[in-house]
Design a protein around this nucleic acid. Structure first.
Lengths: 215, 215, 215, 215
DNA sequence: CATGAATGAGAGTTCATTCAT
DNA sequence: GATGAATGAACTCTCATTCAT
């Protein structure tokens, strides 16, 4: 996919530029989607176009780096919530944190939906996130707070689904996702004898034979 | 945006090519999203690039034609279900029909989710769809089968959300959306005194400051 | 240049269509230049695009046919004026007739200026026109009404020059060319001992190695 | 029409390429008219197609840059001639300079003659040129060296007319325009009581309802 | 290291011309 | 004979990526 993105640089200006770039890219992708050009991102970060490619060996790599940041952030939040007293509340807080991150970044969702854009690292981060979600869900499940056949994979998938449900409203009502989070949470905590009509997903398939991203 | 897309042609070869084109475009957009090039669609339909532009005066027009077909299909399904005996079941069937269309078609989701891709006609069709959804929801609501504060707009938004929830699984488990439809349905029919923490969306905002699709 | 444009057809509807086309093309070229598309001309003539190519085997041929019509018209006018009583007046009337024809048709000038657009037939017609102009000029010269070293070729060239001088004004002042015709005529009839600083053109070179017109 | 064409660059290679490009474009436009493609110009300059668009944000901008250069050159020549001792000679020299530029450049004529090709900047430059021509003409007029009703606008229009008169000859006789300049000059300096049969142009109409040039 | 100039593949779109109906 | 559908080369312009400065 890409040569290999250089690791985090050591020189202080390089570190600063990397930060600048990630922020600018996140903001720009968030506002306008994955189609914004590298040139715009560079300009928005106040650096030259070449600098983008020094730090990230392709547009796909830049996207992956942003994804990674967000996934890590959410994973940390989830890990912290494992310590929380109320498992059901912890699960709900985790989902709220996740949707909020997704909502902040429109590109995130586009990328999660497109396996072709994902790097190996992103896939690994998603799997780690799924593991944390599984632990949180298991705790709540054990308490009887969620349906017995709801899994951590379900929870992760729902994050993206909730964001997409609310997406068209977010321009005018940035908090509207809370409505759909509640609906979804009521769905997974519904006191119902019926189990769901389709079995829980076994795997979270993220690889794909699609063509490369080109821009 | 477009000069004016010629109406359905009368000559038999033209009719055939138009059909070929719509099918190829629907399939290609469905599989790979709105970014597929006109050239690929043409090739896939076995016609020359120019023929695409004879039938649809721009890429946006072609996309709109396909969207309109699907939206109309779903609207019809909804209208038919207004006659059904069981309002709750009718609503669920409508949602199933909707998600199934979304699932079939990746471009559909992109267009519905991205105002910048929408033509006026598409917006109108979405609004008509929302109206049908509202009627179906109202019937179920009157019966006490769904929460009092759930609206037709919620239902339409959920269609896309459910599809996105299941999206990563669809490659390996094409029916997985049924699981999340059930979850969502349980969410909107949950017997809960709490009303949702965020008020129902007033409007379905589909206009956008973005530039129109160009290619 | 072109296969061979079919001669004037015999069937009455074909004759009518040919007339319709020539008129529409002349009018359209005149108004908007040689860049108008064949499709527009066809539409403007109320016939199909195919019909244009039945009558004229290429766009260049259509242009040539129009040119020929105008050149013939002017040649006839010139021939008639050979009989006029006042040679100077006859020459001036000839020039007025010529400029008026040029002014009527913007494309005419573009074509006359671009040897690549000219067919053999057009070149021949221009040479015939030059011969008539030469006769008219010779008569006036013999009377002492024009400078001794002014030739028929000069006169023909001036027609196009006068038209171009006035061109930018013609939209708002369609008769403005009369001003520049007068200036030019005063120039060639000026009572001056000096002969012109550059000898009269020997030939009217109209062939060219330029690329073909394509449209 | 154009985003904004970047100013003259500072890096030496860019400066060189910009020069190469302007020269190639000027030469190519001059020889073959405004219809030459950007691709050809790029090839002719020995650079990639993209480089053209880096330096000039559209074809129209490139054309405008070249036109502006020539118009400024001529305006400067005119301004310098305002200091000349002999007003009539100065006017003639100005016209000679102008025709020479026109003769060198076929695109120049097309642009000046076709309002649809003009940018605002070009129109302004033409108006400045007209003002200089008016001063030169006024000086000559005050001396009685030119007809009382000949204006600077006439002079500017004549530049193009003279070029077009000589155009067909220029391939074989590149200096032939001097003949027609003399004729025209004798026309505007003719010692005649008659005023011209059509009043002087009030304005130099350069705006147009036509679409802008696109390529 | 940072820069932004250069590149060229590829996008959407137009249109003269051909040819099946 | 007339039509207009099909074609595909050509055009302008964009942008990820490379590389000289």
């Amino acid at each position: 996919m890409s040569r290999t993105t250089p690791a985090v640089p050591s020189r202080s200006d390089a570190v600063r530029n990397r930060r600048l770039l990630l922020d600018a890219a996140a903001r720009t992708f968030a506002e306008r989607g994955v189609e914004v050009s590298i040139g715009e991102i560079a300009q928005c970060a106040g650096v030259g176009k070449g600098t983008v490619f020094r730090h990230f060996s392709s547009k796909a790599d830049l996207l992956a780096a942003i994804m990674l940041g967000m996934l890590d952030e959410l994973e940390s939040a989830g890990t912290a919530l494992l310590e929380a007293g109320d498992p059901a509340l912890a699960l709900r807080d985790f989902m709220a944190a996740g949707v909020e991150i997704f909502v902040r970044d429109r590109a995130f969702c586009e990328v999660v939906g497109r396996p072709s854009l994902q790097s190996e690292q992103v896939r690994e981060a998603i799997h780690r996130l799924r593991d944390v979600a599984e632990e949180l869900t298991a705790r709540a499940r054990r308490q009887g707070a969620v349906r017995p056949d709801v899994t951590g994979t379900d929870v992760v998938l729902l994050l993206s689904g909730i964001q997409h449900t609310a997406a068209p409203l977010l321009v005018t009502e940035p908090e509207a996702w809370r409505r759909y989070l509640e609906l979804a949470f009521d769905g997974i905590t519904a006191d119902t004898r019926r189990s769901l009509p389709y079995p829980p997903p076994r795997r979270l398939p993220l690889a794909s034979p699609d063509a490369q991203v080109d821009g």
